[in-house]
């Protein structure tokens, strides 16, 4: 599962860098609802609370696995829509 996350190219990318709560979780939530099951969403954010708290909470509410990759100030948050 983790390898799938790390290696697979995202089906959709949402770039919300420079924005703060609640925009990252609202944008991610909207895309996840629209995506087909099996799709991988990547959210780009530099808002630490989004990567550390709100997006993990969102993925937990949906029941979707999540992986966060940090590159300096930028976080790549990958969420897999399993169902």
């Amino acid at each position: 599962m983790e390898h799938e996350f790390a290696l697979r190219k995202a089906d959709e990318v949402v770039d919300v860098t420079g924005e703060s709560c609640p925009i990252p979780e609202m944008a991610a939530s909207k895309r996840l609802r629209e995506m087909k099951p099996g799709g991988l969403l990547e959210v780009l954010t530099d808002h630490a609370p989004a990567a550390e708290v709100t997006l993990p909470a969102l993925s937990r509410n949906f029941g979707f696995p999540l992986l966060v990759v940090r590159e300096g100030d930028l976080y790549r948050v990958k969420i897999l829509k399993v169902k």
């Binding site: 996350f5 937990r60 696995p65 992986l67 966060v68 990759v69 940090r70």
Partner: peptide, 17 residues
């Protein structure tokens, strides 16, 4: 559901919340 593990991969560091 939050499957986050440190992976032994080349490239950017995985941030594990």
């Amino acid at each position: 559901p939050v499957a986050v593990q440190r992976l032994a991969l080349q490239g950017p560091a995985l941030h594990v919340p």
